[in-house]
Nucleic acid binder design. Structure first.
Ligand code: MN
Ligand code: MN
Ligand code: ZN
Ligand code: ZN
Lengths: 143, 143
DNA sequence: ATATTATTGCAACTTAGTTGCATTTGGGCA
DNA sequence: TGCCCAAATGCAACTAAGTTGCAATAATAT
């Protein structure tokens, strides 16, 4: 992990009141480096031999979500995808695009989208937009 | 199951080339009656003692999805939610609203929403919009 | 009515995520 | 600096949605 990222992870963690622990810094570092939603499995793979216990990673993620610095972006293939919450508002995150060919997820962080207007009586607290299709790489390969 | 719904289920099934079987008609009937996305568990509960084998229901759903008359609306709580595809287009279904208090899902079938404009090079094939909040019932209860 | 092949049922399996509990550790405080 | 203890971690066992292999059954075409 680059030292700038470690600094950033520490700063973020310290802002929450959560204890500064190895597993938390490690997971935050991976999320910083990823810059997109990733799964528990991908986090474990990235940390490789230095990975904390499986359950610890789940609980670290849980605590970071609880502290509002990490965010459950979406569920795909029965696995939760986590990302830093620094580019999300309370009522909606940016849209996420997953390529059905290479399974890569992209954040459309600059795409503004209006909140769906809902019928009378409904209070919409959160909106999630998921896109699927072909990324630029896979688009050109398949013509 | 009302006879009108059974008729409708048969008509729909016959249009697909799939064999007309008890489990398929039963599952289609439940989906018709629900009129909103439901889980495997909810289908099983609705069919109660008449429910086919668990695996059969999964395979029935799979075949109906394959035939494009049923549709995986969204994943929630690690469970797939299925609904009839009669109010969906290929590129997007209507938005779905789930009340976080009573866990009921509503179809906003009349809400038109524009496809998200995506960056250069991306081919968007499908857009899914999920909403969370409080339904009219739960809104008034919580003030 | 028979043959063909899709469909069903059952048991065993997979996998993301959870729970209970004993052990360890971060960080406030004497 | 060292002690204390709530918070955090590790491990084993568990849960639950969904899948797979295979033998038995049933829908349709002829
Ligand atoms: Mn994102
Ligand atoms: Mn719907
Ligand atoms: Zn791709
Ligand atoms: Zn409600």
């Amino acid at each position: 992990m680059k030292s700038g990222i470690r600094q950033e992870a520490q700063r973020l963690l310290d802002s929450t009141g959560l204890r500064r622990t190895g597993p938390r810094l490690a997971v935050l570092g991976v999320l910083f480096e990823a810059g997109r939603p990733i799964t528990h499995e991908q986090i474990t793979a990235k940390l490789a031999e230095a990975a904390p216990n499986k359950v610890t990673i789940y609980r670290v993620l849980e605590s970071l979500v609880e502290a509002d610095i990490v965010h459950k972006a979406f569920l795909r293939d029965r696995a939760q995808h986590f990302e830093l919450a620094n580019r999300c508002t309370a009522s909606q995150c940016h849209p996420h695009f997953t390529c059905t060919s290479c399974e890569t997820t992209y954040c459309f962080a600059d795409v503004a989208l209006p909140m769906t207007k809902s019928p009378m009586g409904f209070t919409v607290l959160h909106q999630r937009v998921q896109l699927e299709g072909l990324c630029p790489n896979c688009s050109e390969k398949t013509g």
